[in-house]
Amino acid sequence: MAKDNILEIENLYVEYDTDDGVVKAVNGVSLSLERGETLGLVGETGAGKTTIARSILRILPVPPAKVTQGTIRFEGQDLGKISEAEMRKLRGHKIAMIFQDPMSALNPVYTVGSQIAEGIELHQKVSKAEAAKRAGEMLEMVGIPRERYTDYPNQFSGGMKQRAVIAIALACNPDLLLADEPTTALDVTIQAQVLELMEQLRDKLGTSLIMITHDFGIVARICDRVAVVYAGQVMEYGSKKDIFKDCRHPYTMGLFNSLPKLDKNEKRLKTIPGLMPNPMDLPKGCPFAPRCQNATEECMKGRIEPKEVTPGHFVSCLYIPERGMSV
């Protein structure tokens, strides 16, 4: 891990302590992100993607969530060790997050403009008027006319709300942006617009980006590196080319196989048989083993460490095929 890594996550474990038992949401995730790079976190619902992002910002709901192990370093600084006040200075300033559901991510009783200005005022130590001016500029940057500054969220459409959420996240020009399924709640045309907007802004501002999604289309379009997450563990991790042209993990292959092929007349989607394991009762070994065709008893015995198959391409599997699958 040389180079200029803006973010390094090492062996992260997160648990939720609920009434029914301990939910193991993240189990030994290690990732790194180079400055200016875009990392895609792909996986099913409940795989722990959002939990990873929230633990970077330290905005997990405490209780019940708890980081039990691991370190997260941002620009070399251990985020687990700094005080809450120091963390607050990073939040929204150096690290910002775009949330999944634009409908509820904005506060209904304040104007959209003031919600964008709030972060600017806080971090850039400028006057109220100056912050309002910059918030207006942010609105225009995401394609909303400045006159809508004094509107309330209920006067915005879904796509505009998501743009406003993006404007809030980008207001202080963060070094690292965590985008948690920013397009999931939107319809397809708006999705395309929002993605385009994010791409433009990323290229213009040079922001490093973690894109959480379950859409391979978005990954193919926007990401440099991809981590495939399953039951809180990274199954396969590599460059976009590694994943799309040379994927080696049976889970990744299963995901790709379940994509419908446009050139064939398919009535049913090919799915991976079985369900994701209950996070309260994870298998001891590879979490994917119960659904994996290649699984042997060896897979159930203990944690499987990632192996580097080609430089920068890590696969957590005991039976890595010689040649990968290409999509």
Partner: peptide, 15 residues
Amino acid sequence: IGSDYMVTARAKGVS
């Protein structure tokens, strides 16, 4: 307290 906009505010760095 459990709503999303509270998390948004927290992510902005508001105390």
